[in-house]
Design a protein around this nucleic acid. Structure first.
Lengths: 217, 217
DNA sequence: GACTGCAATATTATATGATATTTTCGCTTT
DNA sequence: AAAGCGAAAATATCATATAATATTGCAGTC
């Protein structure tokens, strides 16, 4: 197993990021060092490292001499993020579909299969594994574009996905059946190497999610 | 009284980022805390904050328990960055040209004018103000896309521009006359609200720069 | 004699609590 | 009200202690 032993820094990073994405830390709230020090059991300096990292990814706002705040949310911001995700993810998809090898196909089939199983459970009413479901969603979307051959693109996409996810978690209302169908169609188009069609479907998938979230905000 | 009342943190951030982009800190070299502590006159904690920020932007590689390194360069990485810059900057340009108002136009004219003056000097042989020239280049490219109406997009673009710039500085060979002409054409197309044409010219501009840099690597 | 494995040592990164600055906020004075 | 003045709170920075990694030296083996 590739379990790397965690430093205090990296584990508080994971925790705080998770708490921002999943709404435990509410948008706009101030992250007072003395307070979160207790909550996350780390020293001020370690926390500051973490918060600086999160700030340059955009999850935290760092105001010089004035402290740290959980980044605000807004409809405008969500729209920007969704549009960027469309731009980057569709671009990556087309490149990936063109150059993906057998490994890529195998991985994609596996990711789609796992996601599908979980979606069936969710549609049947079992919402107990929300976080696992979201992880499978992520793994599927990643598997589709993973062969795009650009680490820089994948890195940018990963952050955008998390920002988008934060909005989805914020308003959490289920769009399971439609989303599952869309995933399936994207999967089929990608596997049959129809990049243009897959990109069209992916764009619709993201925009549908956007509208669903906007409506619930 | 110091000239600038910045925090130690933000000024070391600026300095180290600058030294990476302009090649004073060589790609792949290790950033030993104790050593750079003297060089940048800051404490370990402050340095670690800075290096963590730079790591999440991609200028520094942070290896758990093993320290910090200046990010390596490679032709593959440069190609990825150039392609992403094309994708994002052209997209932003089209949006900007569509929705730019009189303020945007005024700013663009000013930025283009300043850049043009500096380019004339450079072409005439005066390379003393290399950094000012690059700043004007940045201000021009920013002015073109600034009305794209997406803070998220502008933020991503800013980092990509800096990464691209690093490669240009690495091999510094002058492409002044051609680049100046390309800038001028982009400017004209943008001002006459021909987004498609301006994007085409911008793409060519970036790809020409890429090939020029690749050839010199 | 070169190579491997292992322990002792040196070096480096990580984490912390203490100190110095800066901002915030309530109180007073005009 | 508005401006000025501290005291209290929060942030920024530092020096140092702790934990991990890298290096060195040495015995035992082929």
């Amino acid at each position: 197993m590739g379990k790397h032993q965690n430093t205090v820094g990296s584990s508080t990073y994971e925790k705080i990021k998770h708490d921002i994405i999943f709404g435990q830390l509410v948008p706009g709230s101030k992250l007072k060092l003395e307070l979160i020090k207790r909550q996350y059991e780390a020293s001020v300096s370690t926390l500051r490292e973490t918060l600086n990292r999160l700030a340059s990814e955009g999850f935290v706002l760092a105001e010089e001499q004035r402290g740290f705040y959980v980044t605000e949310v807004s409809q405008k911001d969500l729209i920007e993020i969704a549009k960027l995700r469309v731009l980057l993810e569709c671009h990556a998809l087309k490149a990936s579909v063109e150059s993906g090898d057998d490994d890529w196909e195998g991985n994609l089939v596996a990711a789609h299969h796992k996601l599908q199983l979980m979606e069936k459970k969710m549609i049947a009413g079992d919402v107990s594994e929300k976080e696992t479901w979201k992880r499978y969603d992520w793994e599927f979307h990643l598997a589709v574009i993973e062969a795009c051959n650009s680490k820089n693109l994948l890195d940018l996409h990963s952050i955008l996905y998390d920002k988008y996810l934060r909005y989805q978690m914020l308003v959490f209302t289920f769009r399971g059946y439609e989303a599952a169908q869309e995933h399936h169609k994207i999967f089929e188009a990608a596997l049959s190497r129809n990049g243009t069609e897959a990109a069209r479907l992916l764009e619709a998938h993201i925009i549908n999610g956007l509208e669903h979230t906007l409506a619930a905000m």
